[in-house]
Computed example of a mutant assay.
Amino acid sequence: MKLIFAGTPAFAAAALEALINAGHEIALVLTQPDRPAGRGMKLKPSPVKQMAQSHGLRIEQPPSLRNETAQAMLREIGAEVMVVAAYGLILPQAVLDIPARGCLNIHASLLPRWRGAAPIQRALLADDSATGITIMQMDAGLDTGAMLSVHPLPIAADETAASLHDKLAALGADAIVTTLAQLATLSPVVQPEAGVTYASKLTKEEARINWQQSAVEIARAIRAYNPAPGAHTLLAGEPLKLWMAHAIAGSGTPGVVMEAGADGVIVGSRDGLVVLSTLQAAGGKRLPAREFVAGRTLTGVQLGI
């Protein structure tokens, strides 16, 4: 099938690779313009661009799809379908109407739950037992289009946003290949009105740990914000990033380190104890607790101030 592919991050690159391997003709790849990255702030191509380059595909990086020049370029392709995955640009109705069989989106949730920008993290924060991939026929709304296929995935108890992202990327890659193979026989299903939730964009501020929450909520938040924006608190007034944690029974003063050893830094909360197992001090590397506590006196220290 002749396709246009639009996507930017690693989640989308997995789908692009699967479509290439399935034998589809990728006539054009759209991705976000290169962005500054790293200490040198040099321009870095997106994972989708890197994937497309490795296969010799045509790549375009328009800053917008709202102008006639960009739309004329898409019309010239004559694609049957445009596949979209975490592209980062809004597709106006004029673009949605260009492919002969429409635009299909790979969305990382079980719609209509978690429409929007951060479905993976919001599912973890809400303690959902499952999430998945929805292949959706795009319309002008925010993830409101009719569903072509739904692919559930259970959420493990120790799941981080990073690990769940990788599972969903693989599932999404398989799902879009399967859906395109069955496209002629699938009937779009309108999303129900009941159960709609919105996965708003993550902010650094919300990832600051509130030690007045329960241990279960805090540990869940630490895993949900891994890798971005990264859960954080203060240690002696300096930023401290928290990458992995779990909750255990017990009691302690919220935010106070009750014990620190090889098995973890144990911190009090409103209800229960939080065991911090991977931490990162300002200017340092991510370290397992056994390395982080070496040379530090932490017991009795109040975090967050």
Results as ranks from 00 to 15, higher is better:
Ile77Val: 12
Ala194Pro: 09
Val301Gly: 00
Glu238Leu: 03
Val177Arg: 11
Ile222Asn: 01
Leu273Thr: 11
Leu303His: 05
Asp174Trp: 08
Ser214Lys: 10
Leu124Pro: 04
Ile135Ser: 13
Thr179Gln: 12
Ala79Lys: 05
Ile266Asp: 04
Gln182Glu: 14
Ala249Trp: 11
Tyr225Asp: 06
Ala22Glu: 15
Pro62Lys: 13
Glu159Arg: 01
Trp243Thr: 00
Asp139Trp: 13
Leu30Glu: 04
Lys241Asn: 00
Gly7Ile: 04
Thr134Ile: 14
Glu159Gly: 01
Gly23Pro: 02
Leu279Ile: 10
Asp143Gln: 00
Ala27Arg: 13
Ile135Pro: 13
Glu238Pro: 00
Pro47Val: 01
Pro188Glu: 02
Ile135Lys: 13
Asp174Asn: 10
Ile59Asp: 07
Asn105Lys: 13
Trp243Gly: 02
Thr253Glu: 15
Gly132Gln: 14
Ala14Ile: 06
Pro92Ile: 03
Ala18Pro: 14
Pro47Glu: 02
Val257Ser: 05
Gln280Thr: 03
Ala52Lys: 01
Pro47Ala: 04
Ile20Gln: 06
Met258Lys: 13
Pro47Tyr: 02
Leu180Ile: 11
Leu148Met: 15
Arg270Cys: 02
Tyr225Met: 05
Thr144His: 09
Ser214Val: 10
Val84Thr: 11
Thr185Val: 14
Ile90Ser: 07
Ala100Asp: 07
Thr131Ser: 06
Glu80Phe: 06
Ser109Cys: 09
Ala221Ile: 05
Ala247Ile: 03
Ala294Val: 14
Leu240Arg: 00
Ala85Arg: 07
Thr203Leu: 12
Gln182Ala: 12
Leu74Phe: 06
Gln280Phe: 05
Pro45Met: 00
Met41Tyr: 02
Val81Gly: 07
Val196Leu: 05
Ala262Met: 08
Gly261Arg: 10
Ile248Gly: 00
Ile209Asn: 11
Gly132Glu: 14
Met73His: 10
Val293Trp: 00
Trp211Cys: 09
Ala282Glu: 10
Ala194Phe: 08
Gly195Thr: 10
Ile266Gly: 04
Thr297Trp: 02
Glu205Tyr: 15
Leu28Thr: 02
Leu287Met: 11
Leu186Asp: 11
Ala161Leu: 01
Ala249Glu: 11
Val48Leu: 00
Gly255Lys: 14
Val301Pro: 01
Leu28Phe: 02
Thr179Asn: 12
Leu104Ser: 11
Ala140Glu: 13
Met41Lys: 08
Arg290Gln: 08
Gly272Leu: 12
Ala70His: 04
Lys49Gly: 03
Leu186Arg: 14
Pro62Trp: 14
Ala224Glu: 00
Cys103Arg: 05
Tyr87Thr: 03
Leu164Gly: 02
Asp158Trp: 05
Ala37Asp: 06
Ala100Glu: 09
Ile248Met: 07
Ala86Trp: 08
Gly255Met: 12
Ile133Asp: 09
Gly264Ser: 12
Asp128Gln: 04
Gly102Ser: 05
Arg66Glu: 01
Ala215Glu: 13
Thr197Ser: 15
Leu242Tyr: 04
